[in-house]
Amino acid sequence: MALNTPQITPTKKITVRAIGEELPRGDYQRCPQCDMLFSLPEINSHQSAYCPRCQAKIRDGRDWSLTRLAAMAFTMLLLMPFAWGEPLLHIWLLGIRIDANVMQGIWQMTKQGDAITGSMVFFCVIGAPLILVTSIAYLWFGNRLGMNLRPVLLMLERLKEWVMLDIYLVGIGVASIKVQDYAHIQAGVGLFSFVALVILTTVTLSHLNVEELWERFYPQRPATRRDEKLRVCLGCHFTGYPDQRGRCPRCHIPLRLRRRHSLQKCWAALLASIVLLLPANLLPISIIYLNGGRQEDTILSGIMSLASSNIAVAGIVFIASILVPFTKVIVMFTLLLSIHFKCQQGLRTRILLLRMVTWIGRWSMLDLFVISLTMSLINRDQILAFTMGPAAFYFGAAVILTILAVEWLDSRLLWDAHESGNARFDD
């Protein structure tokens, strides 16, 4: 018995066209964080690309023209004298008006014999932002004059995390709450300039795509075929072959399989920071003279006294001054041990922890910024005066060393310790 099946006739004509040209192939790229070699397709503007294995951002879609970056830099340069030299806060102490600005706080630190601690604050609040705007201006002028731009481009990517104007702005709020127990506070004209400078700096850093600047100024022929001998440069993120001198053909720094002496430098910085954190938390970090009496505060006791007036601000200072430094030390110690013992479990967790400490590390400088600003506000000789204690130097040095330890660690070593050939990683 035959089955009668109805015929289905399409209502619209289906047209099949042959592909007349070869589909576009992607360029081969190595991930600078996990060293995976993959094919990167062509990316349009405002599109980002991520590593298929570790999800690290390979290409950032946010990109401004150099002219727009230069305009932002010149605007920031105009704001800087007002943000640093004009009063941020006014207080009335014992019937006398006192003005506080950024430069005055750094000068008070240096004047009291601790120039190293003052230079830490100076670099993060004044030096690094000033280098940022002058570097962008150098790129703008240098591109037109045919100057060598490689050193500036190499420095810009590392400079971003040292620009800490946003953290200093939080420190202004913390210092205001600490001082309000002794005097009446009012915002100064410099505060508005400083807030504007923070906003412009944040926007500029978020749109400063150094890798795209490398592509514009020093374009290189990408690798179009897969080759395990391809290496990625950690300076400019170019994937290719080393030249005859073993250097990256684009930025001219040595092109090595792994960062040289990464573990040794990381261990040295980490152990030194552990040693410095002990006096930083045991010795007094601030000293207040009130009517001839002397009151010393460690980091913890200062947080407890701050909690009596504002528990939320005390929580912020606790996280930045105690929780973050010790968390960074514990995480980095764990990561280094996992590399030495070739741990194969929990790779995803370790990668996330490394990215976390990379982002939060700079916030530990908050305590030094609060001390710097408070020193310029309260300084009335023996009637009422505020000065920093010996722990300030140890704390600042420990924070900087932990930042350097994270920067010096080559994250690809975590993958080397893991089993080879993993296309995915999980716990």
Rank of each mutant, 00 (worst) to 15 (best):
L336G: 11
L368V: 13
V324N: 13
C124D: 05
Y241E: 05
I360V: 11
V152R: 00
L336S: 06
E161W: 03
Y168Q: 09
V313I: 08
R158L: 15
M103F: 05
D410V: 00
E419L: 10
M36T: 12
G346Y: 12
H207E: 11
A18H: 09
M304F: 09
S193K: 03
A70H: 14
V179M: 03
S262I: 02
L40Q: 10
W92N: 02
M332W: 08
L154C: 03
I330R: 01
F395C: 01
R150Q: 02
D114G: 05
R258Y: 06
L373M: 08
R380F: 09
V406L: 14
D243L: 03
V174R: 00
D166Y: 15
A49P: 05
M365I: 09
A73W: 15
A128P: 03
G389C: 01
Y218R: 08
I91D: 04
R231N: 06
A175T: 12
V133I: 14
R247S: 08
A320C: 10
R150Y: 03
C54G: 02
A18W: 10
G26K: 13
P249C: 06
S206I: 09
F192C: 09
M375A: 10
I351S: 09
S411G: 08
Q264D: 03
L377D: 00
D63P: 14
L414G: 07
V152D: 01
L353P: 09
F122M: 12
F123A: 00
R17D: 10
S48R: 15
C266Q: 01
I19G: 14
T298Q: 08
L271W: 05
L66Y: 15
L159N: 05
S305F: 08
F386V: 02
P279W: 05
P81E: 13
I91L: 05
E86Y: 05
L132R: 01
R259A: 09
P32F: 12
I383Q: 02
L255F: 13
F393R: 05
W84E: 08
Y241M: 05
L205M: 14
V198K: 14
L413K: 10
F386N: 00
L77D: 09
Q186E: 11
P249Y: 05
R362E: 05
P6R: 11
N379D: 04
V198E: 11
R256Y: 13
I91S: 01
H252C: 02
I136T: 12
F386T: 00
Q180F: 10
C54S: 00
C34A: 00
V203N: 08
T67R: 13
T110F: 01
S273N: 08
A2W: 11
G61K: 13
V125I: 05
G61A: 12
T5G: 12
T327W: 12
M36L: 07
W214Q: 06
I199Y: 09
Q47W: 09
T387F: 07
E296M: 07
L257E: 04
N422Y: 13
G105P: 12
L66C: 10
D367N: 00
L282S: 05
D99A: 14
E215I: 13
F38H: 08
L401T: 07
T110S: 14
L145S: 06
A175K: 01
I131R: 00
R412T: 01
L156S: 07
E42N: 09
A18I: 01
L255M: 10
A391S: 12
H90K: 11
Y241K: 10
S308Q: 12
E161D: 11
Q244H: 09
I371W: 01
E86F: 02
I185Q: 03
M388T: 04
E296L: 11
W162H: 01
D99T: 10
S65T: 06
Q55G: 10
L414A: 09
A423F: 06
I330N: 07
Q7L: 12
S206P: 13
Q345E: 13
M164T: 05
R348K: 11
L23D: 10
K328A: 00
D427L: 14
L323Q: 05
T224L: 09
G171C: 09
H418E: 10
Q244N: 08
V125Y: 13
A83C: 05
G146T: 10
S321L: 00
M155G: 04
I185A: 05
W107T: 14
A391H: 01
W107R: 11
S39C: 13
I91G: 01
V203A: 14
R226G: 09
A83K: 03
L77H: 06
V179P: 14
Q264V: 02
H418F: 12
M1H: 00
G105F: 02
I136K: 05
A391R: 00
A397T: 06
I177S: 10
S309D: 08
W415N: 09
L384I: 04
A100V: 10
L278R: 02
W92S: 03
Q33S: 11
M155I: 07
F141I: 15
I185R: 01
L337N: 09
R226F: 13
Q220H: 07
L277N: 05
S301F: 07
N291L: 15
I378P: 00
G421Y: 05
I299P: 05
T9N: 13
P254F: 01
W64N: 07
A307G: 09
L377P: 01
P32M: 11
L409H: 06
L79R: 00
R350A: 11
Q47G: 10
T298F: 06
L66Q: 05
A2Q: 13
Y394H: 09
K342D: 11
Q382F: 14
P242K: 07
I91Y: 04
L23H: 11
